[in-house]
Amino acid sequence: MQTIGIKPSSSGGSEDGPAESPSGTDASYLLAGAGVVAGGAGLILALSGADSPLRGPLALFFLLAAPGAAFAVALRGLDPWARILTSAAGAVAVVMLVAQGMLATHRWSVSGGVLAVGALSVLAFLLQWGARFRKRTGKSR
């Protein structure tokens, strides 16, 4: 008979030095934090109308990163490269649809576009969070 179990990890620290992160999660957390800071700075610079040379690039980063992150959260089951490609395409589509809608209704403004993309991204995050919360509470009953 075969026993199925979880093997203890052998990636613990040794006498030579501290244990290294097996999957590079420290670097990914650092990169995600830097992205959040850059996106937040882009949002603030775009809404404040500051005359900074970083306003354009950081606002563009926010416009692509916020919906891209929302799509990436929704597509957790995909392969990492497929998830990156799909979330990037979805982010571009959201930004283009917001711009097209604002142009069609003659309500174009930079701050309005940034707020609309941000609001749609927050809405997508909240919908994903609500769906996960419902799954967890449904399983415990």
Rank of each mutant, 00 (worst) to 15 (best):
A88W: 06
F71H: 13
L54P: 03
G5V: 05
G113D: 01
P22A: 08
G42S: 09
A41G: 09
A27Q: 07
R55L: 05
V73A: 04
A65T: 06
L123F: 13
L45E: 06
G49T: 11
L75I: 07
G42V: 09
G138L: 07
V92H: 00
I6G: 02
A116T: 13
Q2R: 14
A82I: 06
S21F: 11
E20A: 13
R136D: 08
G130F: 05
A66W: 10
P57W: 06
A74Q: 12
R132A: 03
L115R: 08
R134Q: 06
Q100N: 06
P57A: 10
L78Y: 08
W129D: 04
F125M: 11
A50E: 07
E15S: 13
A91R: 05
G42D: 08
T137H: 07
A124H: 08
T3P: 01
S48K: 08
R136S: 10
S109K: 01
P18F: 14
R141I: 02
L123P: 00
V122A: 15
I4S: 13
F61V: 10
K139Q: 06
V36E: 01
A104G: 14
E15M: 12
A70R: 05
K7A: 15
A116M: 11
L30N: 00
L126I: 12
P8W: 00
L120G: 05
P22G: 08
A66N: 02
R141D: 01
P18I: 09
A104Y: 05
P80N: 03
V37I: 14
S10T: 12
G68P: 13
G113P: 00
Q100I: 06
V37Q: 00
E15V: 14
D51Y: 07
G56M: 12
Q2P: 14
T3G: 01
S28F: 11
P57V: 08
L103W: 10
P22C: 11
A65F: 15
W108E: 15
R136G: 01
R83Y: 01
K139F: 03
G113F: 00
V95S: 05
G40A: 15
V94G: 04
P22H: 11
H106K: 11
V98M: 06
G77M: 02
Q128H: 06
G113K: 02
G68D: 12
A104E: 07
A82K: 10
G17P: 09
F125K: 00
H106M: 05
L47W: 08
F62T: 04
L75P: 02
R141P: 00
T3R: 12
L54K: 05
S9N: 14
G13L: 10
L58K: 04
V37K: 04
L43V: 15
S9R: 15
W108I: 10
V37F: 06
G5L: 10
G112C: 11
G112E: 12
R134F: 05
T105Q: 15
A99K: 06
V92D: 03
T86E: 05
A99I: 03
L127H: 03
L85W: 11
L120Y: 03
A66E: 02
R136Y: 07
L85D: 07
F125W: 12
I44T: 11
A89L: 15
G33W: 03
G118I: 08
K135A: 12
W129I: 09
D79R: 14
L115E: 09
